[in-house]
């Protein structure tokens, strides 16, 4: 059975324009210009237990809105949503006790107090057993390497340290379903890596179902076997990361280093040139023509090195978004 099931979910916002400030709001009480935003426009997917799915899309694609609907914060305009067999918006205790939502730009830790105090508060809120609580804190803080900062006021921590503590506080009750919205936003490369490793480990160890949104392809590439690509509220692709290449990129990339500088005009007949710098060229070539092209290149020029590669996932995704515009 699917842990998360979404059928034809739509979420439209009615937004109105208003002048800034309090008086603008008073004016807006009487005269409002409304327009509809289709944040999510008829998406469907199923996620089985223990899967780690990446949600990718540009800003405003509908990723966060979908997560908010799934975590019970937003009421869907239409469609059916079930998480752990329950309707999220009813916000039943049984539902709330088994999910967690982490937003990279929102914090739940008490700013002025050490993270430890927020942990204790969450322990009571989720009614976590003392023994389990201690075990979880120890385990999670060890996994993230933050044992020695838990007693420092949160406002004194670096962004990376704070995000790690945010993760711990959100995971203390061992949620079965975890929604991560841009968990690596603003983090440096090392911290991003740590965070990814942790998410992967958590997913494997607790068999938690995880949805992760990000606009860093790195996050998704490293963590998710399955990705859902969403743009302007619609799903463009739902499947394995590997088969994106087959589906959206019917071409390969040949990279060639030449002995001497080669005129760019002479290279144009081989395919679409992506990069060129005198004695280096990167050409896009249709899959069926790879062998012939490579042979021709080798026979016509003095080639030092030749590589045939799949296009980078980043480039494919960018193409998908560009094509959808």
């Amino acid at each position: 059975m699917s842990v998360i099931s979404v059928k034809n979910l739509k979420k439209y916002y009615q937004v109105y324009q208003k002048e800034p400030g309090f008086w603008g709001s008073i004016q807006a009480l009487f005269l409002r210009k409304y327009y509809n935003i289709k944040a999510v426009d008829g998406i469907s997917f199923e996620i089985p237990e223990g899967e780690l799915v990446g949600f990718i899309g540009p800003n405003g694609a509908g990723k966060t809105t979908t997560l908010k609907v799934l975590s019970g914060l937003l009421y869907p305009t239409s469609g059916e949503v079930r998480v752990l067999g329950l309707k999220p918006f009813e916000r039943q205790k049984q539902f709330q006790a088994n999910i967690s939502l982490i937003m990279g730009q929102k914090n739940q830790l008490w700013w002025d107090l050490p993270a430890w105090d927020s942990f204790i508060l969450n322990k009571e809120i989720y009614e976590i057993d003392e023994g389990i609580f201690k075990k979880n804190v120890a385990k999670l803080s060890e996994m993230l390497g933050v044992e020695d900062i838990l007693k420092i006021p949160v406002r004194k921590l670096s962004l990376g340290q704070r995000m790690k503590c945010e993760l711990i506080v959100a995971l203390l009750h061992s949620p079965k379903v975890l929604f991560l919205d841009e968990p690596t936003i603003g983090l440096d490369v090392v911290a991003q890596k740590n965070m990814r490793d942790f998410i992967k480990e958590y997913n494997e160890e607790f068999r938690a179902t995880v949805i992760l949104t990000s606009h860093y392809m790195g996050d998704v590439k490293e963590l998710c076997k399955r990705v859902i690509i969403i743009n302007e509220g619609e799903i463009l692709y739902d499947g394995s990361l590997v088969s994106i290449v087959n589906k959206f990129a019917p071409y390969k990339v040949i990279k060639v280093d030449f002995e001497k500088e080669v005129d760019v005009e002479k290279l144009k007949e081989f395919g679409e040139i992506e990069k060129y710098s005198g004695n280096f060229v990167e050409v896009r070539i249709k899959k069926g023509e790879v062998f012939a092209t490579a042979t021709k290149l080798l026979s016509e020029f003095d080639v030092v090195d030749l590589n045939i590669e799949d296009p980078a996932i980043e480039d494919i995704v960018r193409d998908i978004f560009n094509a959808a515009k």
Binding site: K68, S71, G72, L73, R91, K93, Q96, A97, I99, S100, L101, M103, Q105, K106, N107, Q108, I125, Y126
Partner: peptide
Amino acid sequence: NSGNIVNFLIKPL
């Protein structure tokens, strides 16, 4: 205003 209210709404509180 900060949107941190979501942290209450997702908790059994």
